[in-house]
Design a protein around this nucleic acid. Structure first.
Lengths: 130, 130
DNA sequence: GACAAATAAGTGTATATGCACATATATAAC
DNA sequence: GTTATATATGTGCATATACACTTATTTGTC
């Protein structure tokens, strides 16, 4: 299974190279996309969606908050929870980043070979259940 | 492709839980196995084998060196290179760790489903070429 | 309503990860 | 042999990653 981790490292590098013009990491991009889909999502929910530890998410958001790309507010429903929103430049940078990501994505899918994709998705799905 | 990274995070946690009794991380285990296979391998070669950046490997080895599980020496052939060997407890801890790893491996392969493995291997192979 | 159990977040610590940059040595070209 | 280039390692920095532990709040139970 070392291969899964190795592959993830490599894939990360490829995608981060693609995202270089917007100065976003792969994790930061994932977070922005998820936040864009559901403004006001809580920290824990966000972390769960991405399959990342909650405490990791806190630290992933930190540099984004410094750049005002995201904004954290106390949740209205639950005084314990933090709601996460896209900040000032958030949507704009997402609009820039998404095409860059998609280009890398297309290249990746092409390399993997379209025909293998269904298997790939199935396998990745199952990996979550281990 | 976020899924690949997410899967890798999850898989890492599963394997590291399995390795807890020997207090090794997944990266550390990978390194130990590779060193055991070729004592005296150089840092860069080792990093390449594992598909990890050379500078990351330096830092992965640091805690192992502190525990005397690995040993670094100047290479005889090349004054620039460092040769890596298993240290005092190196082989012993490997002997303990390998069964733990294999158990986790078996469970993982079972979950993925034996039949899917050939596809999986092919896909992971191709991911390296992106 | 008081108390226990569950849930949400935050911090300390250690390792992982790789880029940019620097240094040392080897190799190739002339 | 000197010089240019390539190779091997090391360090500074920033982010990624998650566990253990802590604090605050909510929810369920009586």
């Amino acid at each position: 299974m070392q291969r899964v981790r190795s592959a993830a490292r490599h894939v990360t590098q490829v995608y981060e190279a693609a995202l270089k013009p917007v100065n976003l990491t792969a994790s930061q991009f994932s977070a922005l996309v998820a936040i864009g889909r559901q403004q006001g999502v809580t920290l824990s929910t966000l972390a769960n969606r991405i399959g990342m530890d909650r405490t990791t998410m806190i630290r992933v958001l930190a540099p984004l908050e410094r750049r005002s790309l995201v904004r954290l507010e106390a949740s209205k429903d639950d005084a314990r929870a933090k709601a996460v929103f896209l900040g000032k430049g958030g949507q704009a940078i997402l609009n820039e980043a998404i095409p860059l990501w998609n280009e890398a994505q297309d290249r990746a899918v092409e390399t993997i070979n379209e025909d293998n994709m269904p298997y790939f998705k199935t396998i990745l799905e199952k990996l979550r259940e281990i």
